[in-house]
Design a protein around this nucleic acid. Structure first.
Length: 423
DNA sequence: TCTGGGGTCCTAGGACCC
DNA sequence: TCTGGGGTCCTAGGACCC
């Protein structure tokens, strides 16, 4: 009995989310922009030939206009909710599901081939997800996660022929697939390795599998070796159980450059508060924090400055108040007058679970904060936005992201729900 | 004027200890 | 002229992912 893995991947996910509630956009070119409407992070198939991935939006305004491309600011409330709907649907097709990213899941099938035609089963998954959510998906199946990834690429690339579903279930199909796939497109082979491999004449995934294990181990570490085996049909990667995060970051580019120390300090403290909220969500306490600020690296005409600082807390904490205070202290140490800052961030790390908090003889997280933070979280959850802030998070300074093309939060905000009229 | 954000794992090398 | 050997822990940096 062999296990099979499936990779289900939403097609052009963010663009498809926007389209799901505006059917008029079907077949129309769509792009979705990053925070601050900075660059393109998702494109519908129709837009791909005009707009490269990561294109700076401001350089492509003329193209958007000329080609009638519909442009959206990113709407993560919508995408997150649509993702949940897709993933919930997938739970019905296997007891073993790994949510791999916002738009991808692995499913494991143990002994299914005895009872199911896997190609038919894959098609059933595809049509059910689309029916339930309006999101089109591609499905790839193989004996390992890496081969499922390869199959998925084929399903997507040759959608007309495969109908969006491809199964690699024989040696013949495996070799055919790997001979087709450029080595740089293999899951786990990035730009650096791809360049080196190509220089050595290793052009396809198949060429890669023909290298000796020793060579691969030596040049690409154990990670490369696992991949090498996986592509030959030997499973090395299991479905992963969701674990608590080990780092939590909140970082942003600003809508423009900022010189004023107080403004940047307020941003940093707000990032620290967001980190504290994320920490409480997974019931962790942080023991250390990294704070960084830097100027705009694209502006070669301006003086550049970039610095970060990592420091240990005197006691573990996930309190808004304490983390804001720590971040301020750190910021004071790295801020330098006279530069124009464009980006900053806070990363918390070195977590301990709430239950295991040690009692420090001298300094501890203020126990009163626990109840206070629970109340803050409750109110903010209820109201949907960050209504309760620290006094130092100056509400008079309005930091709006540039989001000129934001779609409604169709699924997560009552006021934005689509109204269906009975005729 | 305008160029994203958030993660993980692995390795090498230094510090430190016995 | 010689200057052990091994283990562990930590960190920085590199590579990758979406």
């Amino acid at each position: 009995m062999v296990d099979m893995y499936a990779l289900i991947d939403c097609n052009n996910f963010y663009a498809s989310c926007e389209r799901a509630f505006k059917p008029i956009l079907r077949k129309q070119p769509i792009v979705v922009l990053s925070n601050n409407d900075g660059c393109v992070i998702a494109r519908s198939n129709e837009a791909k030939k005009y707009i490269p991935m990561g294109a700076p939006a401001h350089e492509f305004n003329a193209v958007f206009k000329r080609e009638n491309i519909h442009v959206f600011s990113s709407n993560y409330a919508l995408y997150g909710d649509m993702s949940n709907r897709v993933m919930n649907t997938l739970q019905n097709f296997s007891p073993d599901v790994e949510i791999y990213s916002i738009d991808e899941s692995f499913l494991k099938f143990e002994g299914f081939e005895k009872y199911f035609d896997l190609l038919k089963y894959g098609k059933k998954i595809k049509t059910t997800v689309t029916q339930n959510t309006g999101i089109p998906v591609s499905v790839g199946l193989g004996r390992t996660k890496s081969l499922a990834k390869v199959a998925n690429k084929i399903a997507k690339k040759f959608a007309e022929k495969t109908d969006g579903v491809h199964v690699i279930d024989s040696e013949e199909l495996r070799i055919k697939a790997l001979k087709w796939l450029p080595v740089g497109d293999v899951w786990g082979i990035g730009r650096q390795h791809a360049k080196r491999l190509q220089n050595l004449g290793i052009k396809t995934a198949f060429d890669f599998t023909m290298q000796s294990e020793d060579w691969v181990k030596k040049n690409m570490s154990i990670v490369g070796l696992r991949l090498h085996k996986e592509l030959r049909g030997i499973p090395c990667l299991e479905l992963e159980i969701p674990a608590d995060k080990k780092n939590i970051a909140t970082t942003r580019s600003f809508d423009r450059n900022y010189k004023d120390k107080e403004i940047i300090k307020e941003r940093i403290k707000t990032f620290a508060v967001t980190c504290a909220e994320k920490l409480r969500k997974q019931k962790s306490f942080a023991n250390a924090m990294m704070v960084f600020i830097h100027t705009n690296g694209f502006r070669k005409d301006l003086p550049q400055y970039s610095r970060n600082i990592v420091f240990q807390f005197p006691f573990p904490s996930n309190s808004n108040i304490e983390l804001a205070k720590f971040s301020e202290t750190a910021f004071e140490k790295i801020y330098k007058e006279g530069y124009e800052y464009k980006k900053a961030g806070v990363v918390v790390m070195d977590f301990s679970p709430e239950a295991l908090q040690q009692v420090n003889l001298f300094e501890n997280s203020n126990p009163k904060h626990k109840a206070l933070m629970e109340t803050v979280d409750k109110i903010n959850n209820l109201l949907g936005t960050k209504k309760v802030k620290l006094a130092s998070q100056d509400i008079s300074i309005t930091f709006k992201m540039k989001q000129e093309k934001l779609s409604p939060r169709y699924t997560t905000r009552l006021a934005d729900i689509i109204k269906v009229k009975a005729i």
